[in-house]
């Protein structure tokens, strides 16, 4: 009796199809309920997380790429500005040199001009003085002549007279 019950279990009498049916129905109900209330939402959240992670990875990669691009751009800009600055300095140097030469040249020309004009003035003055002297001498000669004519004078007197006039002319000038 013990062995027979061990072999076939507690339900050795008859065929209980009811249990089968019940088990089947209950299992299908359980499957449906779990799908609706437990596995469905759970799967949803897991898929959502997967998507989230994938998106985050994608975003991180994109921003990394962007950062790299920025870096490259900045590097380019720095390089460019460095060459620009070098160029500016070079230009300024050249310009300064040119300006220096210019100023020196101008100063030289100006000095030349001033010197020239001074020379010219000197010459003019000299001419003027000579002319004036010449006129004086002419009038003086006329004057002497008249004086000689007016009165007979001694040679000493005449000499005295000429000297006086020359003295006079020198003072009058």
């Amino acid at each position: 009796m013990l062995t027979s019950s061990l072999v076939l279990g507690s339900t050795s009498q008859g065929f209980n199809g009811g249990d089968m049916l019940y088990q089947l129905v209950v299992f299908i109900i359980l499957l449906a309920l779990l799908k609706k209330f437990a596995w469905g939402p759970l799967m949803g959240i897991m898929t959502q997380r997967e998507e989230h992670v994938a998106n985050e990875i994608k975003a991180a990669e994109a921003s990394r790429q962007e950062a790299l691009n920025y870096l490259e751009e900045q590097r380019e800009i720095v390089k460019q500005s460095r060459t620009e600055a070098g160029q500016l300095i070079e230009n300024a140097k050249l310009q300064g040199e040119a300006q220096r030469l210019d100023i020196v040249n101008q100063a030289r020309i100006e000095a030349d001009r001033v010197k020239e004009s001074a020379k010219r003035e000197i010459v003019q003055e000299k001419e003027k003085a000579i002319t004036a002297l010449r006129e004086q001498v002419a009038s003086l000669s006329v004057l002497i002549a008249t004086k000689v004519i007016e009165k007979e004078l001694s040679e000493a007197d005449q000499e005295q007279l000429i000297n006086d006039y020359i003295q006079e002319a020198g003072e009058g000038k």
Partner: peptide, 17 residues
């Protein structure tokens, strides 16, 4: 023993149920 029960021509073991 098993608590067998007949219902609509099918045998149910109520313990299993």
């Amino acid at each position: 023993g098993a608590p067998l029960h007949n219902f609509m021509g099918l045998t149910f073991n109520l313990s299993n149920v």
